[in-house]
Amino acid sequence: MPAPDLKPQTPGEPLTDTPSDTPADPQAAKRAELEAIAALNAPEVIEGLATMTPDELRLLHAIETDGKGRVTVLGAINAALAPPKATVTPSSYEIPLPPEVSGVVAGALFDFLGFLTTRDKVISLGSTETPHDAMDALEEWASTRGLQLDEPAVADWQERGTELATQQDVGKSAGDAGDPATIGPRRAVLTEQGWVVPEAPKKA
């Protein structure tokens, strides 16, 4: 049996061969790599973001913040870290909302936003926030406006609004012809003279 190839060992030298160019700490190696990337031009840095993991992106963000602090690079990193936005299918908005209903909905939304600006309490909205404070504000606003929130048409409010507007238009036409039809909040009533639609209260 041949004798093993024994290499003379110098005192204090590691027992195994370790290449001098291999960092012992993987984290230090990754940071050095990202620091080299951060030294590139902004377009080159941004181009490489798509292949990075979230941890690498966060570390690169810290390096860029402590270094050049380029707004374009930091913005691109933040965009890469942001969760993907929910895709809205076109079918959800195929039914156009009639102008009169749109005006009412828009008015309510702006009224609620205006109401929020009058409150002392500040609320935060976002994917990382709980909706409790926002719901409290909505309920407070609704109570001052006499608005019921028991059965909100969250999923089909557009279809419901279009349907109500259509019923109102049909009711107006049928009411003119003397048919017992619903006209918005007014209903045709049967009298001695036949079906009569009460006139809407005149505006002052």
Rank of each mutant, 00 (worst) to 15 (best):
A174T: 08
P131A: 14
D120K: 13
W157I: 12
I123Q: 06
R119Q: 15
E159A: 14
L164R: 13
P90A: 07
E140K: 09
P98M: 03
P96M: 05
A165C: 04
E163F: 12
P152G: 03
Q167F: 08
R119A: 05
D150M: 07
D169C: 05
A108C: 05
A153R: 13
P180R: 03
L97I: 14
G175R: 10
P180V: 03
W157S: 09
S124Y: 09
R145A: 11
D169H: 03
G161H: 06
P180F: 06
T117E: 12
V101A: 15
L116A: 12
G114S: 08
D111M: 07
V154W: 10
S124V: 11
S124N: 11
K172P: 04
S173Y: 02
G114H: 09
L138G: 04
T130M: 07
A137S: 15
T130W: 03
S92K: 15
V122I: 08
T118P: 04
T162W: 09
D111I: 00
E94T: 13
T144R: 13
T162F: 09
Q148S: 15
T118Y: 02
L97N: 05
G178T: 06
L149C: 08
A137M: 14
A177T: 09
T162K: 09
F110C: 02
S127D: 12
A181T: 04
D120I: 05
I95E: 13
L113M: 12
T130H: 07
E163H: 08
P99M: 13
Q158R: 15
T166N: 12
T166A: 15
E151Y: 10
D169M: 02
A153Y: 09
G175K: 02
P99K: 10
G171Y: 06
R160M: 10
T144V: 00
D111N: 09
P99G: 11
L164M: 11
P180Q: 14
T144I: 00
A106Q: 12
P131E: 08
D133G: 02
V170L: 14
T166F: 13
S127Q: 11
S143R: 03
G175T: 01
K121W: 03
V105P: 00
E163Y: 13
P152F: 08
A177Y: 09
D179S: 09
E129S: 06
D176L: 12
D133N: 07
D169N: 06
I123G: 03
P98R: 11
L97D: 01
P90C: 02
G114Q: 02
A134P: 03
Y93S: 11
W157P: 01
S102T: 08
K172D: 04
L147Y: 06
S102R: 13
L147K: 02
G126K: 02
L113K: 04
K172C: 00
A165F: 09
W157T: 01
V170A: 10
S92V: 12
S124I: 08
L164D: 10
Q148Y: 04
W141Q: 03
T144D: 05
F110S: 06
E100P: 03
E100M: 03
F110N: 10
D120T: 15
A155C: 04
M135T: 10
G114N: 14
S127W: 01
